[in-house]
Design a protein around this nucleic acid. Structure first.
Length: 350
DNA sequence: AACTTACTCAACCGCTTCGAA
DNA sequence: CTTCGAAGCGGTTGAGTAAGT
């Protein structure tokens, strides 16, 4: 037998509160305080359960509630707090005076979540997205960027922040994003690797894309040989690329446990590495799956209209191949790219 | 103008935590 | 230590509204 509902009394009203009910509740609490919520409705002359009264008070009637749009600062704070605390809305709310946990939760689910997704950040982990669908989209964009220098959308207008020439910018930023996501993938997401392995055959013949990318023996998990050798010092020097790598103190804040409580205020209020690694907050263009503002189908149409055009890469591995074919893809180029990735992202983002 | 779709947010449900007995 | 009631919390729902067709 389950637990009986909190409002056992029959005839207890549910649903939206009327102004009269609000009046009664406010009048009672301002005179007597909330006290026992269970007893409150009877004393206040309300035909509601105590729980409903408490919720109405804490989420709506409380005099210190701040209404209106969330400011940009609040937005950033919520994202930072969420990266440390997870879905602990009430704890997050304690850092935002006047905001209720319910309000923050709603704001997160309806706005911030989408925003992060569009920016290529997984809203659950606050790490670059590594879902296959997103990576495939990214690789298509990269291919288009390589093949079509005209792909410069208005959202790249902050190029100056990077000190880059516009024609190179889309190319480089897409590469950075792809590298980040791939490294994230290589670094820890073995289940995704398995998924990719199973999906690859469905995408066509890509075995030639990278020499021997997948070893035949995968009994101990997929064994990928990626075409670049990342030296240890690069890994450590680039926390933005390797978000799950241990911090200096030997702790990975964002992965210290399923419950991310216990974070210091510095951790909570400071800029969070895992958030600030994204390339641009202006990437949230129309297409949810496409943070670069150009739909892949549109780009393909554009490409098909051009004669003697190479096909756009259709997988992450194709994108890798493209990168490697690139004249610029020398060792020094990769080093520059990685340096850029690790040093330039924060000021761009926030 | 009518209809559909997408979005927002107040409110509810049910599980967990807390504290008194 | 255990039990039990109350409060707290997070996930979900659905009515109202705005935007799009």
């Amino acid at each position: 037998m389950g637990r009986p509902p909190c409002c056992e009394e029959t005839g207890v009203k549910k649903g939206p509160w009327t102004p009269e009910e609000d009046e009664k509740l406010m009048a009672y609490i301002s005179k007597h305080g909330s006290g026992s919520w269970r007893a409150l409705p009877k004393h206040a002359g309300l035909n509601r359960c105590g729980k409903s009264c408490r919720l109405r008070w804490t989420n709506y009637l409380r005099p210190d509630i701040r209404r209106g749009k969330f400011t940009e600062e609040e937005e950033k704070l919520i994202i930072n707090l969420h990266s440390v605390l997870g879905n602990k809305w009430s704890k997050i709310a304690t850092h935002l005076p006047g905001r209720t946990d319910n309000e923050i939760k709603n704001f997160w689910n309806t706005n911030l979540r989408k925003k992060l997704l569009q920016m290529g950040i997984d809203p659950e982990t606050h790490k670059p997205r590594t879902d296959l669908k997103y990576l495939l989209n990214l690789s298509q964009l990269l291919g288009t960027a390589i093949n079509n220098n005209n792909l410069i959308s208005p959202s790249w207008s902050h190029a100056g922040l990077l000190g880059l020439q516009q024609p190179d910018l889309a190319h480089q930023l897409v590469q950075i994003q792809l590298v980040q996501n791939l490294l994230q993938l290589i670094n820890g997401n073995s289940s995704l690797l398995s998924n990719m392995q199973s999906v690859l055959p469905l995408l066509g013949n890509h075995n030639s894309v990278i020499n021997n990318p997948i070893e035949a023996d995968t009994t101990n998990g997929p064994n990928y040989t990626f075409p670049i050798n990342l030296r240890d010092q690069e890994l450590h020097a680039s926390p933005a690329l390797f978000p799950s790598a241990p911090s200096e103190s030997g702790q990975d804040i964002s992965e210290s446990g399923t419950d991310r409580e216990g974070a210091s205020d510095q951790q909570v209020l400071g800029i969070n590495n895992s958030i600030s690694r994204t390339t641009s907050h202006e990437m949230n263009q129309a297409d949810d799956e496409n943070p670069f503002g150009a739909t892949s189908s549109g780009n393909f149409n554009q490409m098909e209209g051009r004669s003697n055009q190479q096909s756009p890469p259709s997988t992450v591995f194709d994108a890798w191949e493209k990168l490697l074919e690139d004249d610029d893809a020398s060792d020094s180029y990769w080093k520059e790219l990685l340096d850029l990735t690790s040093t330039s992202t924060s000021p761009i983002l926030w």
